[in-house]
Simulated assay, not measured.
Amino acid sequence: MDPLTAFGLVAVSAMLVTYALEDRSPWFILAFAGACLLGSAYGFLQGAWPFGVLEAVWAGVAAWRWRSKTSQASGTA
Protein backbone atom coordinates (compact mmCIF):
# COMPACT_ATOMS: atom_id res chain seq x y z
CA MET A 1 0.00 0.00 0.00
CA ASP A 2 1.46 3.34 -1.02
CA PRO A 3 1.40 6.37 1.32
CA LEU A 4 -1.39 8.13 -0.59
CA THR A 5 -3.66 5.10 -0.35
CA ALA A 6 -2.88 4.79 3.37
CA PHE A 7 -3.76 8.47 3.83
CA GLY A 8 -7.07 7.92 2.04
CA LEU A 9 -7.84 4.91 4.18
CA VAL A 10 -7.18 6.89 7.37
CA ALA A 11 -9.29 9.84 6.13
CA VAL A 12 -12.29 7.73 5.16
CA SER A 13 -12.03 5.63 8.33
CA ALA A 14 -12.02 8.82 10.41
CA MET A 15 -15.11 9.99 8.54
CA LEU A 16 -16.89 6.73 9.30
CA VAL A 17 -16.00 6.72 13.00
CA THR A 18 -16.81 10.38 13.65
CA TYR A 19 -20.08 10.13 11.71
CA ALA A 20 -21.12 7.14 13.82
CA LEU A 21 -20.38 9.09 17.02
CA GLU A 22 -22.07 12.39 16.07
CA ASP A 23 -25.01 11.85 18.43
CA ARG A 24 -22.69 11.67 21.43
CA SER A 25 -21.29 15.18 21.20
CA PRO A 26 -21.26 18.16 18.83
CA TRP A 27 -17.48 17.87 18.85
CA PHE A 28 -17.77 14.69 16.81
CA ILE A 29 -19.63 16.72 14.18
CA LEU A 30 -16.68 19.10 14.04
CA ALA A 31 -14.29 16.14 13.89
CA PHE A 32 -16.36 14.78 11.00
CA ALA A 33 -15.90 18.11 9.21
CA GLY A 34 -12.14 17.82 9.69
CA ALA A 35 -12.17 14.22 8.44
CA CYS A 36 -14.11 15.38 5.37
CA LEU A 37 -11.37 17.95 4.71
CA LEU A 38 -8.83 15.14 4.86
CA GLY A 39 -10.97 13.15 2.43
CA SER A 40 -11.14 16.18 0.17
CA ALA A 41 -7.36 16.53 0.20
CA TYR A 42 -7.06 12.85 -0.65
CA GLY A 43 -9.45 13.24 -3.57
CA PHE A 44 -7.48 16.13 -5.03
CA LEU A 45 -4.11 14.46 -4.43
CA GLN A 46 -5.13 11.27 -6.20
CA GLY A 47 -6.64 13.16 -9.13
CA ALA A 48 -10.34 12.59 -8.45
CA TRP A 49 -11.29 16.27 -8.23
CA PRO A 50 -15.09 15.65 -8.14
CA PHE A 51 -14.57 13.58 -4.97
CA GLY A 52 -12.40 16.35 -3.56
CA VAL A 53 -15.03 18.99 -4.27
CA LEU A 54 -17.88 16.95 -2.78
CA GLU A 55 -15.91 16.16 0.36
CA ALA A 56 -15.15 19.87 0.76
CA VAL A 57 -18.89 20.59 0.50
CA TRP A 58 -19.61 17.91 3.12
CA ALA A 59 -17.03 19.56 5.38
CA GLY A 60 -18.87 22.86 5.04
CA VAL A 61 -22.23 21.23 5.77
CA ALA A 62 -20.81 19.50 8.85
CA ALA A 63 -19.23 22.74 10.10
CA TRP A 64 -22.58 24.49 9.67
CA ARG A 65 -24.32 21.65 11.58
CA TRP A 66 -21.74 21.92 14.37
CA ARG A 67 -22.25 25.67 14.63
CA SER A 68 -26.02 25.25 14.71
CA LYS A 69 -25.80 22.54 17.35
CA THR A 70 -23.44 24.54 19.60
CA SER A 71 -25.60 27.66 19.22
CA GLN A 72 -28.67 25.70 20.30
CA ALA A 73 -26.82 24.28 23.28
CA SER A 74 -25.80 27.73 24.48
CA GLY A 75 -29.28 29.13 23.91
CA THR A 76 -28.29 31.62 21.21
CA ALA A 77 -30.05 29.95 18.29
Results as ranks from 00 to 15, higher is better:
L21R: 05
R65V: 10
L4N: 10
A35Y: 00
L4M: 13
A11L: 08
S13M: 03
T5D: 03
A20F: 14
Y42R: 02
C36W: 00
A20P: 05
W49D: 13
A59W: 00
A20M: 15
G39Q: 02
E55L: 10
R65G: 02
R65H: 10
L38H: 07
A56D: 04
G8W: 01
M15K: 01
R24G: 15
L21K: 06
S13H: 07
C36G: 03
A11Y: 03
G8N: 04
V53L: 15
A56R: 04
C36M: 03
G60H: 09
G60F: 12
R67G: 07
G75V: 12
L21S: 06
D23F: 09
S74K: 10
L45D: 08
Q46I: 15
A73G: 13
P26L: 03
W64D: 13
V10P: 00
A77P: 08
P3E: 14
T76V: 15
E55F: 11
P50N: 07
V10L: 08
G47W: 04
T5C: 03
A6C: 13
S25A: 13
D2S: 14
A11K: 02
G34F: 08
G60S: 13
G52A: 11
F44L: 09
R65W: 06
E22K: 11
V12K: 01
A35V: 05
Y19L: 06
E22D: 13
F44H: 08
A35S: 11
L30W: 09
A59E: 01
S74E: 09
L16K: 02
S13D: 10
E22A: 13
A41M: 10
T70Y: 01
L45I: 06
A73K: 02
W27H: 09
A14I: 02
D2H: 08
P26S: 08
G43M: 05
A59G: 14
W64I: 13
A31W: 05
V53K: 02
A6M: 11
D23H: 06
L16P: 01
T70N: 03
V53S: 12
S71K: 11
R65A: 08
Y42M: 04
G39D: 01
R67M: 12
G47L: 06
T70L: 05
G52D: 14
F44K: 03
V10Y: 04
A41Q: 06
L30T: 03
A63F: 12
A48L: 08
F28H: 07
L16V: 09
L45S: 11
D23K: 04
I29V: 15
I29G: 00
S25C: 11
A56Q: 07
F7M: 08
S71C: 12
A31C: 13
G47C: 12
